[in-house]
């Protein structure tokens, strides 16, 4: 289990990276934390002829607060984000999800940008970005552009990134005044979830003004279900409303099965988790309101 031969470069700036991508884009592969790519290389399931190692591009390692958003540089380690007070305070949904990304050793090396760009629909961070309606900033030979989460995730392991483009940063809207919860069912702690869901709700008293849900593991991209969100919106979060939500989620999603869980399992459990996540998020929102009073 040794990687096939490849050529290697370790650029030290975004500009050098863009130049490398421009020169080798289609045969090249960007290496960020490597926690998903290197296993594929070791198994020779991925055989890029050029590896462009981003780990020496120091300028992509930052966490900044900007206009109600938290901008996280693409090469920020997941562990750094997990330990960031800003993330803990202002991005509670991300703070909930990060400890579920693999294990400590994976997060030490794995990056926020790598996880997003890998676009595994079973992964947690894409769902967080989708639930928060965040965006990414992308740099290519044509300059930088901003892509909304829903446009960025195109299909299984496929994003809107062009072959000569580089993910620069991930922008998560701050949501410290909302209630949120990230729940998942995984075979074991640290596994990719069979099904997971990130939920964010805005509460006014006991009434849910706005609810967003993004699911992992149930489609080719993080899955949003506007109809299901609408079930909760403008209502009190009662058992009856939640039951209706769960049923609708189960009805509307269309996952595929694999050796760990059938499509039926995922449908059913997505409904269960949607219920539990909205309940938990609403509860947290109420706690925040009580603290603010």
């Amino acid at each position: 289990m040794k990687p096939a031969p490849f050529q290697y470069a370790a650029p030290e700036s975004v500009e050098e990276t863009v130049a490398l991508l421009h020169a080798h884009g289609t045969e090249g592969k960007l290496l960020a934390g490597g926690q998903s790519l290197v296993p594929l290389l070791n198994m020779r399931l991925a055989r890029p002829s050029v590896i462009i190692d981003l780990n020496r591009v120091r300028t992509l390692d930052y966490i900044r607060e900007e206009n109600g958003e938290i901008a996280i540089g693409a090469m920020t380690r997941q562990r750094t984000a997990e330990r960031s007070p800003v993330v803990t305070r202002r991005l509670p949904l991300l703070a909930d999800a990060l400890p579920l990304v693999g294990h400590l050793q994976i997060r030490t090396r794995g990056t926020v940008g790598g996880n997003i760009a890998h676009a595994d629909p079973s992964a947690e961070l894409p769902a967080v970005l989708a639930a928060l309606e965040g965006s990414v900033v992308v740099r290519g030979p044509g300059g930088t552009r901003r892509v909304a989460a829903h446009a960025f995730f195109v299909s299984y392991l496929t994003t809107a990134l062009g072959p000569d483009e580089l993910l620069l940063e991930v922008r998560f809207p701050a949501h410290e005044h909302q209630g949120s919860a990230f729940l998942e069912v995984a075979r074991r702690h640290g596994d990719y979830a069979l099904v997971g869901v990130g939920a964010v709700v805005t509460m006014a008293g006991n009434v849910c003004q706005r609810a967003r849900l993004a699911f992992t593991g149930v489609g080719p991209v993080p899955v949003r279900i506007p109809d299901a969100e609408a079930v909760v919106t403008g209502k009190m979060v009662t058992d009856g409303v939640l039951a209706e939500l769960g049923k609708l989620v189960t009805h509307m999603i269309d996952p595929t099965g694999d050796i760990h869980a059938s499509a039926e399992y995922r449908k059913e459990v997505a409904g269960v988790l949607a219920r539990r996540a909205i309940r938990a998020a609403a509860e947290r929102a109420r706690m925040k309101q009580m603290r603010m009073r």
């Binding site: 296993p39 198994m43 075979r187 074991r188 702690h189 640290g190 596994d191 050796i259 760990h260």
Partner: peptide, 23 residues
């Protein structure tokens, strides 16, 4: 897990799940 053609579908520790400290 084998499929109907006799391919072994569980050939990594991501698919063949050993219990950890958590289980």
């Amino acid at each position: 897990v084998y499929d109907e053609s006799g391919q072994l579908l569980t050939q990594t520790f991501m698919d063949y799940l050993l219990p950890t400290t958590m289980e």
